[in-house]
Structure formats: structure tokens, C-alpha cells
Simulated assay, not measured.
Amino acid sequence: MAASSSVARPITGRFVLITTIAFFAVVISVNIVMMRLAITTLPGTEVDSAYSASLAYQREIDAARQQNERDWQVQAHIDRRPDGSAAIALEARDHAGAPLTALNFLARLERPIDRRADRAIEISETGPGSYRGRAEGVAAGQWDLVIEGDADGRRMFLSKNRILLN
């Protein structure tokens, strides 16, 4: 009678060494891939220098206080079109309701999660207190609409609002 018997392979030092090296090679490879993905998709910092931002903080507070005292009413309406462009319409009035003219408005659509997707909008005056602009390549989703109004090189108005474009 012939019996087939399987002989168990002994665990040798060579097997343990190869298994350990293979295990750590897989762990290190996955860590390298994940680290590379994290670094390449990092959108960057909100400010380049926290020290510079802290120095400008008091000036920002003063500018906001002055803006509140002017009591300007700036209404913005933005639509995303099927071709991926976005059109913005601004109506600017002073505290008495008179149209604000000869202002240089700048607008930006900022992605809350990725600064690389930000879009600048060129705005031009189309009538007394009426301003229009357009941006290309605007994806659907959440954006921050930042509107700045300058007169004689001095910022007179700043607004930042979270919006949803479909």
C-alpha cells in the first residue's frame, strides 16, 4: 500500500527574511504613493505669511468700519450657463439710493477647497450703477463670490458670500 504523505516545509530564516522584506516593501510603497498624492493635490495655504496677515488685520477692521458707515447697497446676481460660463450683474447704490458710478469693480469666484480653480471676472459699467461681467470655465458647485469696489485706487467695498452654482 502506497501512502502519499505531504511533508511540511520547514520555516527557514531565508523564508522569514523574504517575507519581512516583502511586507515592508508593500507598506513603504503604499506610503510613498499616498504621500505623493497628498502633496500633489494640496491646494496650498490660505495666506503666504501669517505674520503679514496679522499686521494687515487692523487695516481690514478699519476698512470694514468705513464700509459700514458708507452704507452702500450692492446687489449681485450670478447665473451659470450650460456652456460653463457664469454671468454676473451688479447694482450699486449709495445710502440714499442714488446709483454709484465710476467705480472699478472686481469679482472672483473662489473654490472653497481648491484655490487653483479660482476664476476672475472682469466687470465693466454698463449704465449708472449697473455693472456686468462674465467668467469662462466655471464648474457647478459651491463657490465664494468675492466682490471688491475701488475708487481712485482705494478699496471702498468688499463682500464675500458663499453661493451654489448649478
Rank of each mutant, 00 (worst) to 15 (best):
I39G: 06
L55E: 11
Q66I: 03
A8Y: 07
N161Q: 12
Q58N: 09
I113G: 08
A25W: 05
A92C: 05
A76V: 04
T101G: 01
F15Y: 05
P10L: 15
R111G: 11
E136F: 01
Q66M: 10
Q66V: 02
L164T: 13
A22H: 03
G127W: 02
M156V: 07
L158S: 15
S52M: 02
L90I: 03
H77R: 09
G141I: 03
A3E: 15
G141D: 04
N104K: 10
S130K: 11
K160I: 09
T12D: 03
L55V: 09
N31D: 13
M1I: 05
V138R: 01
D83A: 09
G149V: 01
E60I: 01
A98N: 13
G127F: 04
P10Q: 15
D71Y: 07
T19M: 08
V146C: 00
Q67G: 05
L106T: 04
M156Y: 03
R162C: 00
D152M: 08
H77F: 06
A98E: 14
A56P: 00
L17M: 09
L164F: 11
A64V: 03
L103E: 02
A50K: 04
T40M: 08
M35D: 14
M1P: 01
M1K: 11
Q67T: 02
G153A: 04
A102Y: 10
D152I: 00
A25V: 11
L17A: 15
R59A: 15
N166R: 06
D114T: 02
R81W: 08
T40G: 04
A98K: 09
I163L: 04
R9V: 15
R111N: 14
R155Y: 03
D152S: 11
N166C: 01
R162A: 10
V26T: 10
V27F: 07
Q75G: 02
A98F: 03
S54W: 07
A92P: 02
T12I: 01
D114H: 01
P112H: 07
S49A: 07
F23N: 13
S49V: 02
L55G: 05
A3Y: 11
L145F: 09
Q58A: 09
A96Q: 14
L103V: 01
